[in-house]
Design a binder for these strands. Sequence first.
DNA 1: TGCCGCGATCTGTGATCACAGTTAGGCTGT
DNA 2: ACAGCCTAACTGTGATCACAGATCGCGGCA
Lengths: 241, 241
Amino acid sequence: MSNLSSPRSIETAMAIAKIGRLERVTLGERVHAELRDLLIGGELAPGQKMSLRSVAETLGVSIMPVREAVARLVADQSLEVLPNRAVRVPLMTRTRFRELTTVRLAVEGFAAEAAARNRSASDLAAMRRFEEAFLAEAHSPRPRLARAVRANKELHFAVYRATGLPTLVGIIEGLWLKIGPVLNLDLKASPARLRTGGAAEHHRRLVAAIEAGDAAAARDALVGDIKGAAAFIESTGRLLE
Amino acid sequence: MSNLSSPRSIETAMAIAKIGRLERVTLGERVHAELRDLLIGGELAPGQKMSLRSVAETLGVSIMPVREAVARLVADQSLEVLPNRAVRVPLMTRTRFRELTTVRLAVEGFAAEAAARNRSASDLAAMRRFEEAFLAEAHSPRPRLARAVRANKELHFAVYRATGLPTLVGIIEGLWLKIGPVLNLDLKASPARLRTGGAAEHHRRLVAAIEAGDAAAARDALVGDIKGAAAFIESTGRLLE
DNA sequence: TGCCGCGATCTGTGATCACAGTTAGGCTGT
DNA sequence: ACAGCCTAACTGTGATCACAGATCGCGGCA
């Protein structure tokens, strides 16, 4: 398209200026993003083992960027390295699940309030888009589960981003990294929850409250969503201990 | 002392069992802890530059563990690497300072509530110990500032640990990593704040509320503490933008 | 005497090598 | 035929090498 070594037009110059603004994105960062999406999307089950070298080969990079990404995930306990030097997705005990849920209720509940007070029109439009995408899969006779999981995540994070508090969004991402394997793996294992679980209704109330600027109602709706999903997970009896 | 290759007594066997329980602590982890303490303690000023190799030489390790530690700190924005490849403590803008304070009020405020509901007797004893240590420095004619900063941090984290929510403690640690350089550097620059700032009074109310199990009062006291310090920092006019 | 330019040096990032520890499978000995 | 040992392969962690890009200071020209 454009010739980088001899810019001819204003458009090209602007494109180059944009390129100059791109923050340095290292390979390690990209590997981290890849693993993060897999974890949050529930595509890596608790207990699943992996090795630095195998991940490196799969992703077509050397072991170094994988080391960095895995080290970060291990540091915040989204992955763990056993005394045997095996890296795996941590198992989830009922105690730990309840702890994470408690923290989620506090942090994401606050985010819902802040979003209700702060959301812009475009924030709201983004929420609506992902809510619809989620509904489409939930009502489909043969829902595409990966797509439903992604839409659910995007809807939630559209809300969190609407707070205008990027630090808070980062904190919540960390929480989803830890709980995603359990939450979304089980969603995929029991598609019925898409319809019977009240997720769709919670989402509707959440977006409506945020549109109305009703912080308390927004928190209520989000808390209901989290509690509903948590109750379902606990009812499956798949948690340890 | 004991001969590891031929245990002779039950004591020796138990000692070995204990050794076996030690979790793997890598060099990278230790470097991370070192840098974390420096950042939280305000011993690294915003804008301060460092290089992997110089840190490695100072700590007497190779560059690899430093890379891992710095990569983690850069990932959560406690450090930043400029386009010039220089690593430095991020500068603090007023906007970012207010954002961090908002998140701290929500997260640490919740932690104070949870601590009031959950604290054990030994939790309370720990708080008292660090509160006293802080008071000793605050009332001293020539306070040792580093010690005061450390006592303040230990008091706060004694409260946070009393929640029984280690995930929450980790989140708050991340927040202190980002705000520590500004908060505690300025405390050291203006020792007068130790006496005039209402920190001691906020601490007293905080511990009393937690002892009484009064969650709302505990949150109030902690919120007052955070807001007081934030107001002081803003009044110094040292924030950018 | 003042200023520009070029090279030596230093930066983080990625690749490769080295190593101690574990694991699993095959071979040997009975 | 079966059990036990031993070796070969594989693990994460640490060290070293390689490299592209940026910085800074010294030397030479005007």
